[in-house]
Amino acid sequence: MPARPGQHPVPPLPGRSGPSPAEARPAVDSSTEVYRTVQASGAFQEIRHSYRAFVFPVSGAFLGWYLMYVAAQAAAPGVMRSQIAGPVNVAWLLGLLQFATTFVLTWLYARNARTKRDRAALGLRWDTQDQLR
């Protein structure tokens, strides 16, 4: 019975032929080495850095904006009930701005990916595929 991933192969019973434990161990796949080389490359690290340089600050800013909305609702309910126009109050306006912010950040992320990372990642992908052939 072959070993499942993460399990050691069962040695054959005495007197029966079969692979030795050293032969039963899977060899390191050449594709694994290609991907490890790509991961260690400067181009891949630059793509990761570009991704993180955009995503972490923007995610932090959006989380702060959301928590400010929740804190304002809890700390100053009178201000949040202040009417702006007709039935629209400050809470409704800030809540709708949360949705608008989500769409703007999605657009900014897509634009950032398209202009800064996609071309480099595609080039890296083609190089990797060439190495695997």
Rank of each mutant, 00 (worst) to 15 (best):
L63K: 03
V79W: 12
N89I: 03
S17D: 09
Y69T: 08
S41M: 01
E23S: 00
G15F: 06
T128R: 08
Q129S: 10
G64F: 15
G64P: 08
I84Y: 06
A110S: 11
R52L: 15
L67A: 08
F44M: 12
A120E: 08
R52V: 08
M80R: 00
P77T: 03
R133P: 04
R133V: 11
A22E: 15
A53C: 07
Y51K: 07
P9L: 04
F103L: 15
Q98H: 09
F56M: 14
R4E: 15
N89Y: 01
T101R: 09
P57K: 02
R119C: 01
V88G: 05
D130C: 10
S20W: 00
A75I: 04
D29W: 13
R36A: 11
V88I: 15
T101E: 07
L108E: 06
L67T: 02
S50Q: 13
L108F: 11
L108M: 13
R16G: 01
R48S: 09
M68Q: 09
S31Y: 14
A24R: 05
V28P: 07
Q7W: 08
P12H: 01
F103G: 12
R117A: 04
A74T: 04
G18L: 04
P5D: 03
A85G: 01
P87I: 03
P21C: 05
S31A: 15
L105Q: 07
W65Q: 09
G15N: 02
M80S: 00
W92L: 14
R4K: 15
Y109T: 10
P77G: 02
L122I: 10
E46M: 11
P77F: 03
R36N: 13
I84P: 01
A120M: 06
S17I: 05
A22V: 09
F62W: 14
R36E: 15
Q7K: 12
V10G: 02
P87W: 04
P14C: 03
A43H: 09
A3S: 12
L67D: 03
F103T: 07
F99D: 04
G6Y: 04
Q98D: 02
H49W: 11
K116R: 15
R48A: 11
V10S: 10
L67M: 15
V79N: 02
T128Y: 06
T102F: 13
V28S: 07
A24Y: 03
A100K: 02
G42Y: 09
F103E: 05
A76H: 11
A74W: 08
V55I: 14
F103P: 01
T37V: 07
G64C: 13
V10W: 00
